[in-house]
Amino acid sequence: MLSIKDLRASVEGKEILKGINLDVNAGEVHAIMGPNGSGKSTLASVLAGREEYEVTGGSVDFLGKDILELSPEDRAREGLFLAFQYPVEIPGVSTTNFIKTAVNEKRKYHGQPPLDAVSFMKLMKEKMNLVEIDKSLLTRSINEGFSGGEKKKNEIFQMAMLEPKLTILDETDSGLDIDALRIVANGVNKLRDENRAIIVITHYQRLLDYLQPDFVHVLLNGKIVKSGTKELALELEEKGYDFIKDEFSLSEAV
């Protein structure tokens, strides 16, 4: 589904991603872990199309398309979804109107007619139950005055409404209490199936306990330096990143 080859990117002339290689197939959940500043969020931003990052090399194939050539909106319409680490507050734009616009622009892109009001409300209701989000939040302006947990829930709700093929969760667990984490993780789990894939970017084991990833990758200094199964995450939790740094610097030296 997603094939990243030797991806390099920089911001303001400073290279952050130094040759990322990653393949994600339908139905898989990949976790990307790594210390602060290793390039995890940069990877998410580059995939979603944030313009301040300059891609300096490599390629990203998503469902047979070179997505680096696409605008952020077209990437989303092709089925890529980024759950933001810091969802933006947008006063004056109602959440419902926003999601309706997003759903219908995506439908238009795929040659489908817009959803009528009744079908849209029905879809909203169904997905609201799925992610346990309070109806009153959706009548308010986007994320305005939402708590940290509510913002993250709103991200998962949008994911449910847009039914993406590939979801990138960028530190969705940060700032969540245990209950909110459980609700968010359950929401994500309900949206999992064999046709969709998820990339989870996180510092911590606790979200992975719920999501049970198929693969875990360690990102260090702009490169994936180690890949393994979910046991690797447990090892990291126990030993910290230092053992990998040591291992990595040894192999670099050779």
Binding site: A48, G49, R50, E51, S71, P72, E73, R75, A76, R77, L82, F84, P87, V88, I90, V93, F98, I99, T101, A102, E105, K106, Y109, I142, Q158, L162
Partner: peptide, 9 residues
């Protein structure tokens, strides 16, 4: 960017 990342032109 937030709006565009949801598929809005």
């Amino acid at each position: 960017f937030y709006l565009r990342a949801r598929g809005i032109s």
